[in-house]
Design a protein around this nucleic acid. Structure first.
Lengths: 245, 245
DNA sequence: CAGTGGTCTAGACCACGCT
DNA sequence: GCGTGGTCTAGACCACTGT
């Protein structure tokens, strides 16, 4: 921490912001892992030489940001990408008749190592000789193939993931467990497109069928873009839900 | 306010929540109007018989929720639906090449009073004899007709709006100014559809062209659903942007 | 300069969950 | 019962804005 009464300086940051960043760094570097409990507010305050109120403000901000979660009477924990939470936060496709909040099954079609084209290299800011992992899979909702996914991951961050025979349905939980990469923020771009030949085959739709295409760039806790994913959905009985607050 | 040390009760709410709701009610009933300044933290604290810290927590929560905005050294104000803020918050269509953050022009095609069908009545929870205003317009982006909008408003909340010859581009600002209705939250549901005959004519697209359809229900500060809107966009050079945090 | 919100501290008490 | 986070208070000082 800085001195208790910081002088005005060009790089001034509020104490609680500094505490916030320090805790985030500790999580990024793996000192505190997903699911683990943090020291109590008073312990952290003593540790960092600030008041309990300042620690509280930092912890609350991180809780707001889904980095931590708190349980009264128990403690403060590092957030974990459980399936339910991911469904709520990063999976926005819903059945039109909301009656089936069913967990979508994902079938792996193919995994391969590819040489990225110019635009994909730019997304990840990769050097010219770096490889990218491509995962091709299809999600079924209500027992019908509904969403075709093409997922791109820089090989440097996910070494040897391309050699796995099976992958879990919740990739984000998998990234977190095996590569210490927590997907924190993402940007989705939606368009309407026509089904191409592969779509027709995989999703079992006719030519001329409109699909909802979602392009996602996902960023880790440290801000790096670590995943690019294209989802093409048969939106006959589905929609993509957005809540604006 | 309640007594300073509230006993545990089934209807217990934290003080700052009560303050928050009280301020929200004042805004809803029009005591404090959009753009106006609120009393200072200390004045509010005296007024309500709570401490300044509690008022602050309520004001900060409302600021987080876009109901208020605060300017250091000046004061706390009721949020106003300015064009720029609405663009940022409630208008998520962007050019694919982000170079033109141009304000989309909206051309009014038709306004009429209609008898809602069953599903539309359900959206607004209307009695069987109530009428709904339908507004039909088209937005141009980069000088090309891109989005066709059908907007539905219960006549009870927007009396005589259907008689207006001209309507401003930013309807949400207009609702706020003329009807004291502030759009606060909204839910968008996105699908891919094929252009129908009207789409083809208005958006100048061919049959078989895929369109991005957005169905929105918008709610006012008091939680009532006050607008339903269907936007059909030619997403050839556009996309709908979602930030997931 | 006066007044506003922003930060930081210190301390009290409450509600909750576990053991 | 004990330790945790949640609420509430009181007071000090800083940073910004407009006069």
């Amino acid at each position: 921490m800085t001195v208790s009464t910081p002088k005005p300086s060009p790089t001034f940051k509020p104490l609680y912001k500094q505490v916030q960043e320090l805790i985030t760094e500790r999580i990024i570097e793996g000192s505190w892992k997903p699911g683990e409990i943090l020291p109590s507010e008073f312990q952290l305050a003593d540790l960092l030489g600030v008041s309990q109120g300042t620690v509280r403000k930092a912890l609350n901000a991180l809780t707001e940001d889904n980095v931590l979660f708190r349980r009264q009477g128990v403690g403060t924990f590092v957030s974990e990408h459980t399936l339910q939470k991911m469904m709520f936060h990063f999976f926005h496709f819903k059945s039109d008749n909301g009656d089936t909040p069913e967990l979508p099954y994902a079938q792996l079609l193919e995994t391969q190592l590819i040489t990225p084209d110019e635009s994909l290299r730019a997304v990840f800011d990769l050097a010219s000789d770096e490889k990218v992992i491509e995962i091709h899979r299809v999600r079924s909702i209500n027992n019908s193939a509904s969403i075709r996914e093409l997922i791109y991951l820089p090989h440097r961050y996910f070494a040897d993931l391309d050699k796995e025979e099976k992958l879990p349905h919740s990739l984000y939980h998998y990234y977190q467990q095996h590569f210490n990469i927590t997907i924190h923020k993402a940007t989705d771009r939606l368009k309407a497109v026509l089904a191409d030949e592969q779509d027709q085959e995989v999703l079992n739709v006719a030519a001329g069928q409109p699909l909802l295409e979602v392009g996602r760039t996902a960023r880790a806790l440290d801000g790096r873009t670590v995943e690019y994913r294209i989802s093409r959905a048969n939106s006959q009985d589905l929609h993509y839900l957005v809540e604006l607050n």
